[in-house]
Amino acid sequence: MTDPSARRDLLRGRFTATAVPRPPGALAGLAFGEACTGCGDCARACGAAIILCDGEGLPVVDMREGGCTFCGDCTRACPTGALMPGAPWPWRAEAGPACLDANGIQCRACEDFCDAAAIRFRPMIGGRARPVIDPETCTGCGACVAPCPAGAISLSPLTSEIRPC
């Protein structure tokens, strides 16, 4: 289980709880939930105002209003060590089926806002194009989330591939 509130979800009968993006530098797994006091210092330090509190009082990153600059202000403001500098950001952008371009309506707003140039559009039959996001180039900053008029872009956690021995 990777989400800090996963244990609480399991005990409450929510077996399909999804991971939520915590601020950059968040400790992995249950360690974050144990270290974070929910003081809100990280949210107050965030110049982009994208850190909010979830139902458990823990910080979550909400890219609907803008993207993360990875400035580190939230990490430096954390008094408990729940956010560690230099920890990797395990989230990447993902385009869903509501994408206007994939449905025949010219848009490409996400591509315009991607400073990392991680979003490209692959032509499809019928004059449509579908967004392809390069997970190696994408930083997961979320700058593409807010400008998407269809709400088709979201952040997804990176998953490590598990192979049998």
Rank of each mutant, 00 (worst) to 15 (best):
G86T: 02
P90E: 04
V132E: 15
G140C: 05
T137G: 01
P123Y: 10
R92K: 10
A116I: 00
D115K: 10
E111Y: 12
G126C: 03
Q106R: 14
I125P: 06
T137C: 04
A118W: 01
A116R: 08
T139D: 00
I125S: 09
E111Q: 15
P135W: 00
W89G: 00
P131A: 15
F121Q: 00
A118F: 10
E94C: 07
R120L: 08
C99V: 07
I133A: 04
F121S: 03
D112I: 13
G140K: 04
C114T: 05
A146N: 13
R130V: 14
V145Q: 07
C144M: 14
D115P: 03
W91A: 00
P90K: 05
R130T: 15
A93C: 04
P88K: 05
C99M: 11
P97N: 01
M124D: 14
D101M: 13
C148H: 05
A102I: 01
A146P: 07
C107A: 10
D101G: 01
E136G: 15
C110L: 10
I133S: 06
C141R: 06
R108Y: 15
W89I: 00
I105M: 11
G140Q: 00
A95N: 10
P123Q: 07
A129I: 08
E136V: 14
D134S: 11
A93F: 00
C141Y: 07
A93L: 02
C148L: 12
G104Q: 12
A95H: 02
C107I: 02
A93I: 01
A143I: 01
G86S: 04
C114L: 04
G142H: 09
G142L: 12
C138R: 05
D112E: 15
G104E: 12
P131C: 11
R120A: 13
P123N: 06
A87C: 01
R130L: 15
A98Q: 14
G96T: 12
R122P: 03
D134Y: 03
A143E: 10
V145R: 01
C148D: 11
A129N: 13
N103I: 04
L100M: 12
A146D: 13
M124G: 13
V132L: 11
I133W: 06
R128H: 05
R128I: 02
A116T: 09
A87L: 11
A87G: 06
P123H: 07
P131F: 10
R128E: 09
L100A: 15
E111D: 13
G127L: 09
A93T: 07
V145G: 06
V145A: 06
W89M: 00
G140R: 06
W91M: 01
A95Q: 09
C99P: 02
C141K: 03
G86M: 11
A93P: 08
E94G: 12
F121G: 00
C99L: 14
R120K: 05
L100I: 03
L100D: 08
D101H: 08
I119P: 01
A116S: 13
D134E: 10
G140Y: 01
A102W: 03
C138E: 02
A87T: 07
V145M: 09
R92E: 04
A102P: 02
E136A: 13
W89F: 07
D112W: 12
G86H: 11
R130A: 15
A146S: 14
R122W: 08
A102H: 03
I125R: 11
R108H: 15
C99W: 04
F113T: 12
G96D: 13
A95V: 11
